[in-house]
């Protein structure tokens, strides 16, 4: 019993040395927002890309989680769920050499040149014939 009252409460404090920010089990937390929402097309594409890359063995779910943990708590305030995902996927693909930063830069420039509304595409607006 003394163990719980002495060493355990101090070494389990939020700022205990060595405790990573994400390892928050048992800490006070706010309420949970139970609201649900539909996913944007780009979010579904991120999901598909992530499954495809993992299936090809380009990284594991552990590599993705490690990348998410390395982002730090501020990323969970400033980025949405799938923004964090694509960031973690990108980091892992760069690490494993699937593409270089230079190639990624060129591709992002090319996509940006398509215009600001490109990302608004929806499944409702797509025609099957146009998929070829």
């Amino acid at each position: 019993m003394t163990r719980h009252m002495s060493e355990s409460d101090s070494d389990r404090s939020p700022d205990a040395a060595g405790r990573s920010w994400h390892d928050m089990g048992g800490l006070p937390a706010g309420g949970i927002n139970p609201a649900e929402h539909d996913f944007a097309l780009w979010e579904k594409r991120v999901d598909a890309l992530q499954v495809l890359c993992a299936t090809k063995g380009l990284y594991t779910v552990d590599g993705l989680r490690r990348a998410l943990e390395e982002m730090g708590p501020q990323a969970f305030e400033s980025m949405t769920y799938y923004e964090r995902w694509i960031s973690a996927v990108t980091k892992n693909l760069l690490e494993t050499g699937v593409f270089t930063t230079e190639e990624l830069n060129a591709r992002m420039e090319a996509v940006a040149a398509r215009g600001a509304t490109y990302g608004d595409a929806s499944i409702e607006g797509a025609s099957p014939e146009g998929e070829t």
Partner: peptide, 15 residues
């Protein structure tokens, strides 16, 4: 353990 890295053992169970 206190090592950095990707660790799946929750902090609240250590010890």
């Amino acid at each position: 353990g206190h090592a950095p890295g990707h660790i799946r053992t929750p902090w609240y169970l250590r010890g």
